[in-house]
């Protein structure tokens, strides 16, 4: 089922949290809302869920108008599934009771509930835990109960609010793979809120990168990564360096330092913002000399931090035992100057 949001607006008091946001999600698609905290991504998700009401705009789920500021369909009547950041597993109900609850609200008969619960628990590999109480489960298991409960009613749209952010790193990767595997079995539309770019890149069909209440770019993971629409997208998704300065005769000057622009890159002279990803900076004996502030061995690569003005320039490359390495820009993208 599709989700169509047009010109959504939402304010809390004087702060505009979501401003004029439009988003079309195709049936069966998984869209990630990616952005730093406070960018409005969770508020957007909660508006789709019906947990927050719109200040303006229209919101359709499928062909049904669910909210336009006047008409409002309550969350329980939208038949969605949702996984909460805190999991929201009811501590006074067992695993099976938690998962059965949406079906009971639907008014299903006991045997039908039973089979559906078992199927949902099987889907998240928790059948053995069905009679456990929530406090007896680990974080990862609670997370899977939340998934089973959200999926048990076979919703047309599944909403996930930072579902992995409360887990430790290893578990996060495991569950990320599990959600990816789930995608092949459950053909439901998904909206996935996260601040972790790797989750968004790995799972989503399209990523909506959000900042200050607006979508800065809505595109496939590859497009967002390779061709960021704004410096913000480049720095948030790729962790790119943002250099403010000006172009002058095939060079970019920032903080009184000259960098040669890569061969084949044509640029008019004048002020601009240069975006360079860490792995697109080549560390070696050629290029611009810069004072090295830190050298961090990460295993698969080494991170170099060069002092540049008051900030630092991040470069990623093989470990080199050079005392005074230099940097050269292999690839970059030039934007109009930003404030």
């Amino acid at each position: 089922m599709s989700v169509r949001a047009q010109n959504l607006r939402k304010s809390y008091g004087k702060t505009q949290v979501v401003r004029d946001l439009s988003l079309d999600i195709a049936p069966g698609e998984m869209v990630a809302l990616l952005g730093p905290s406070g960018c409005g991504k969770t508020t957007t998700l909660r508006m789709i869920a019906g947990l927050n009401r719109l200040d303006g705009g229209t919101l359709y789920i499928g062909d049904r108008l669910v909210d336009d500021g006047r008409t409002f369909i309550a969350p329980e009547k939208r038949a969605l599934g949702m996984v909460f950041q805190s999991y929201a597993i009811w501590p006074h109900k067992s695993v099976a009771e938690n998962v059965a609850y949406p079906l009971e609200r639907k008014g299903l008969a006991k045997p039908a509930v039973e089979t559906s619960v078992l199927r949902a628990l099987d889907l998240v590999r928790l059948t053995a835990m069905r009679d456990r109480m929530p406090h007896q489960l680990s974080g990862g298991q609670l997370q899977r109960v939340a998934l089973a409960r959200a999926l048990v009613r076979e919703p047309e749209v599944l909403l996930l609010d930072e579902p992995l952010s409360n887990l430790d790193a290893a578990l996060r990767e495991e569950l990320r793979a599990e959600i990816a595997a789930l995608r092949s079995r459950v053909r439901t539309t998904m909206v996935y809120v996260t601040h972790d770019q790797s989750e968004a890149l790995a799972l989503a069909n399209r990523i909506a990168v959000m900042n200050l209440g607006v979508i800065e770019q809505l595109a496939s993971p590859q497009a967002v990564y390779d061709d960021p629409a704004t410096p913000f997208v480049a720095s948030f998704v790729g962790g790119a360096n943002i250099l403010r300065g000006f172009v002058e005769a095939g060079h970019f000057v920032s903080h009184e330092t000259r960098f040669a622009l890569p061969a084949g890159m044509t640029a008019k002279g004048g002020p601009g913002t240069l975006v360079v990803r860490a792995e697109d900076l080549e560390v070696g004996m050629l290029g611009t000399p810069l004072p090295l502030a830190a050298r961090l061995f990460l295993g698969h690569a080494t991170e170099y931090r060069f002092a540049l003005g008051g900030t630092s320039l991040r470069a990623m490359g093989p470990h080199l035992p050079l005392a005074e390495p230099r940097v050269a820009i292999k690839r970059a993208k030039l934007f109009a100057p930003t404030v």
Binding site: E76, A79, M82, F84, W90, Y101, P102, K106, R153
Partner: peptide, 11 residues
Amino acid sequence: SLEEAARMSGA
């Protein structure tokens, strides 16, 4: 969110 989860479950 415990209550909201119940709302999303149809209560």
